[in-house]
Design a protein around this nucleic acid. Sequence first.
DNA 1: GTCTATATCTCGATAGAC
DNA 2: GTCTATCGAGATATAGAC
Lengths: 193, 193
Amino acid sequence: MPAQSTHDLIVEKADALFYESGFDATSFADIAAAVGISRGNFYHHFKTKDDILDAVIARRMERTRAMLDGWQVEGESPRERILSFIHMLIANRTQIMDFGCPVGTLCSELAKLDHAAQGRATEILRLFRDWLTEQMRALGAADQAEALALHLLSWSQGVAVMATAFKDEAFIRNEVAGIEHWLASLPDLSQSP
Amino acid sequence: MPAQSTHDLIVEKADALFYESGFDATSFADIAAAVGISRGNFYHHFKTKDDILDAVIARRMERTRAMLDGWQVEGESPRERILSFIHMLIANRTQIMDFGCPVGTLCSELAKLDHAAQGRATEILRLFRDWLTEQMRALGAADQAEALALHLLSWSQGVAVMATAFKDEAFIRNEVAGIEHWLASLPDLSQSP
DNA sequence: GTCTATATCTCGATAGAC
DNA sequence: GTCTATCGAGATATAGAC
């Protein structure tokens, strides 16, 4: 494995800080301190804060694609693959209770800032939507596939917001059980003629 | 109606700006400009920015209580009252697509800022939770009442986040129809012996 | 590619005249 | 109760030595 470039290290640390403290509240000094370089050195790699945001969003896009590809290969059925998505809420529960969903909270913040990158952040959410739509279609949902995908994505976003506000792990587990029950109740029409 | 005091006017304008731009991104200068007073005059009314936040949260608590009381009086059944809650998503759809839910986004932002007022913001959400729990109990949900209330609150939060990200009014209407269907499917046990 | 030093701006907050 | 003037801190961003 090659040594990580300063450029990539900045993006990695900025990604974490934007998640944990928000984009606006994270300063160059915060990122520089996390990376271990001086503030001045920063501008050799990124000219503006918005450039870093673009790089962070691009990184999240890449990693999301890789994660979805992994679930696609590992899952032996659409239902199993959708469960991989759902179980993110359990796997990341501690971080979610502290900072919410990385994508949902970024979209909400950029909306309030009326930031130009708002559309690019939504693209990450669209990756999930399209992947889930594909799984729903494989379940035979046909023209209902996208609505079901959006509903599931929305459900997970609601759980994340509530978990952050109430810091309630039992609520997360309860809702995840509810989602699993809902998924199981969806009829599988893919074997029909 | 008495003339509105400068104090109350500051809180009203700050409330709107915190919603539309976020707490952190809203400066004293922004609020002062909206109210039409100088920055210096500000500190006669509020000593710190956190004091304004506390006043804004208190205002939202009051107004939420008043709204819930109104629904309680106007609604002729628990089901009707719950519909009043659900239809907020339709009535406020334009603002929600621009800025999300005022309460949910505030809780998320304060969580990332690790702000001391985080718990007070959650109290607003708790008002909705407890009121909805009461309605569910009136429907005969008994020990499931709070879980149903949290589920509905979570559902609405998810719709708000998604609506903000995708700017999709059809999605809101679709989900509201789904919530109405879910509500109608809940058995009413309140008439049972 | 990394550093120090600095410019400029805006922030929250204060002092004091009226 | 409202204003102007100003402080110190910290923000983004730049210049230039090494």
